[in-house]
Design a protein around this nucleic acid. Structure first.
Lengths: 338, 338
DNA sequence: TTGTACGCGTTATCAG
DNA sequence: CTGATAACGCGTACAA
C-alpha cells in the first residue's frame, strides 16, 4: 500500500501538499495539484482512513443503535439513513442491544451505545425504547452527539426525529368515521409508551370533533403484537358491547384482530372494519389488504442522517424537518356504510 | 480523554506495560497488573480504538455489504451476524449497493465493497447477486478476506454460506405429493439465478422419484416478486392445463398467486394448494397462512460471523457448517386430497 | 517481568 | 501557495 509519503516523493512535493490536495481544503496551484494527482494515480494510492482518523479526530462514521434488527421498521429506517450517509462518504456502524430478555433490555441498549462511542463514531442515531429520557439527555451532553429516531424528548428536541402520532390516531379514526362508522373500538399498545397514548389521544379527538362520545368499554390495551389484537378483539366481543369497526395501535394488532375475526366466521370488512397503524410491509400482503396509517420511517431515517450531516459534518442541508406527518393508506379493510 | 500515557504515569510503570495489561498477551506480574488496573479505573481510561488500529493494523470491524436493506432477508441476516460478532467485541459496518437502477446494480455493489475495504475492515461478508463469480474470486485473493452469504462459488467454497436449494425444492414438491397432489405447477424465479434453477431441479427430482412426469406446460418463470406470481398463475390458467397445486420459487410469488386466485374466486386451499419458499415474515400474516420452506437466514448469518471469527480473528469455533438444510413449515395452504 | 524507542499514515500548526 | 515538523495514541521489537 502506497502512502502519502511515497506520493509526495514521486510528485516532488511535501507531505503537506499531498494532504492538501486530498482534502481539497487549502489552496494548491493547479500545476502542483496535477503532479500530485498523477503520482497518486501512478501508485494506485488509497488514503488510510485509520491514520487519517487518528490525526483528525474524526472517523467519518456514524453509529446506529437499534433495539432489534429483525423488526419491520429496521430495514426501512436503515435504508434511509444509509443512502443519505453513504452519498456523503460517511460510514454506518451498527449495533443492537443484543436480543436480551425484556428486563435486561435497558442494560443491553446502554452497552450498545457505549460500544459505538468507544468506536469513536462521530455521531449516534439511536432507536430505543427502554432507555430513560434522563439517560439520553445526559448522554447528549457528552462529546458524541446523539440523535433520536421515532422519539421526542423536549430537552433535546433539535436532535429528535419523530412522528406526529396524535395526528395519526386522528386520521385513523377519521377514516372510519368518514365511512359512516360510529361505534368504533380501539385496541391500543401499552399505555406507558408515549406512542400508544398519543395515538389514542388522536383517536379521541377525532371522535369528539365528530360528536361521538368515547365509550370506555370499547377501549382495550395489550402488546403491540398479533396476540394483543386477538386477545383484544376477544375481550371486546365477550363484553358484548356493539361496534362495527376497530382502530388498532399498530398493524400487528390489526393482523391479530383479523385472524381472530376470521376464526369466528366474521367476514372482513363486511362484519368488521379494521384499520392499522405503521404500514409495515406485510400490511399489503394480508387479506384483505390492510387500510392503515403510513409511518414514513425511511424518510425519517434519511432526515436523521441529514441532521447529522448538517450539525456534525457542517454540510448545509435544506428541507430539514423533525416531525413527520402520518398519512392514510386506503386499502380494503374498511366497509363503506351507506 | 485519558491516554495510556497518563495511566502509565499514575501507575508508575511504562507505556509498554500498560499496553500489555490491556491486551492480556504478554506476562505481567499480578502486582503491577493491579496497579495498572487501578490507575485505569481512577482515570476512567478508555482505549482509543483508532490509535490501536493504526498501530496493530486491525480494526476489529467487519463490513457487511447487501444489495438492499429493506428486503425481508436483511433483518434476519444482520441479526445473526451482529449477535455473534458483537459478543466477540467486533463491530459491524454496513453498506449497500445504493438503491440503484437494475442496470447499475453491479457497479453499485462493487463500489460498496470498495467503500468497506477502504474502511480497513478486517473481513467482508457480502450478499450480492449482480457481481460475477470471477470478480468475487479475484476479490477474495486480495488482502481483505471475503465471505459470501447465500451463494456458493466453488473456487472459494470455504468462504461460502449457502442453502441447499435443491433439497428445498424437493421438500416443497414432496409436501404437495404427500398430500395427494399430482398435477403440480411450478412458478419459478428467473432461471439465470442459481437459486431458481436449483429449487426447480429439486422439484423435478421429487416428481420423478414419485413417478410423476414433469409437464413443461406447468412451468412458468418470472420475477421473484408478487407480480411474478400473479402473471404466472394467469398464464397457467389461460393455457388451460389442469393442476391442483402450485409450488412457487419464493414466498412473494406465492403471495401473488394467492392474490390472483382469490380475485378469480378460487377458494384457498380448496381450489388450489400453494407452497412458497423462504418463510419470510409475512408468510404467517398472509391468509391462509402460507405453507413454505424455511430458509434459515439468521442461522446462516451467525455462521458467517463464526467463520470470520475463526479464520480472521483466530478464535476457535465449533459446529462450523457451510451448507444449510431447508425445512418444511406446514401451515394452511395445502389441501389434503383424500 | 519490565522499560525504551521507534513506527503506523495522516492532519495541523507554523513559518516562509 | 508550499514545506518542515510536531502531534495523534498505541503496539512491539529489542534491550535490560
Amino acid at each position: 500500500m502506497a502512502t502519502i509519503y511515497e506520493v509526495s516523493k514521486l510528485a516532488g512535493v511535501s507531505l503537506a501538499t499531498v494532504s492538501r490536495v486530498m482534502n481539497k481544503n487549502a489552496k494548491v496551484s493547479d500545476k502542483t495539484k496535477a503532479k500530485v494527482l498523477d503520482a497518486m494515480e501512478a501508485l494506485g494510492y488509497r488514503p488510510n482512513n485509520i491514520a487519517r482518523s487518528l490525526a483528525s479526530n474524526r472517523t467519518d462514521s456514524v453509529g446506529i443503535m437499534v433495539s432489534e434488527l429483525h423488526g419491520p421498521f429496521f430495514g426501512d429506517m436503515m435504508a434511509g439513513i444509509e443512502e443519505e450517509l453513504r452519498a456523503a462518504g460517511k460510514h454506518v456502524v451498527i449495533t443492537t442491544g443484543g436480543d436480551t430478555l425484556e428486563e435486561d433490555k435497558e442494560h443491553g441498549e446502554k452497552e450498545g451505545i457505549d460500544f459505538l462511542i468507544d468506536r469513536n463514531c462521530d455521531a449516534l442515531i439511536v432507536h430505543v425504547e427502554s432507555i430513560s429520557d434522563e439517560y439520553l439527555i445526559n448522554l447528549h451532553k457528552g462529546k458524541t452527539p446523539v440523535y433520536l429516531m421515532s422519539r421526542y424528548v423536549k430537552q433535546m428536541a433539535d436532535n429528535c426525529i419523530s412522528l406526529n402520532n396524535e395526528q395519526g390516531g386522528y386520521l385513523a379514526a377519521k377514516a372510519l368515521i368518514d365511512k359512516g362508522h360510529e361505534k368504533i373500538a380501539y385496541i391500543s399498545g401499552p399505555l406507558f409508551k408515549p406512542d400508544s397514548t398519543a395515538r389514542l389521544n388522536g383517536h379521541k379527538r377525532a371522535l369528539s370533533e365528530h360528536g361521538i362520545d368515547f365509550d370506555e368499554r370499547l377501549l382495550c390495551t395489550g402488546e403491540f403484537k398479533e396476540i394483543g389484537g386477538t386477545k383484544g378483539l376477544k375481550h371486546l366481543i365477550d363484553t358484548g358491547v356493539e361496534f362495527t369497526a376497530v382502530a388498532c395501535g399498530n398493524d400487528e394488532i390489526a393482523s391479530g384482530v383479523m385472524k381472530y375475526a376470521r376464526e369466528h366466521n366474521m367476514k372482513l370488512p363486511e362484519d368488521l372494519s379494521v384499520i392499522g397503524f405503521d404500514n409495515v410491509n406485510f400490511a399489503s400482503y394480508i387479506y384483505p389488504t390492510l387500510t392503515t396509517i403510513d409511518n414514513p420511517v425511511r424518510r425519517m431515517g434519511r432526515m436523521a442522517a441529514k441532521l447529522v450531516l448538517q450539525d456534525v459534518y457542517r454540510q448545509k442541508q435544506d428541507d430539514i424537518k423533525r416531525i413527520f406527518e402520518p398519512k392514510l393508506i386506503e386499502r380494503h379493510t374498511i366497509l363503506e356504510k351507506s
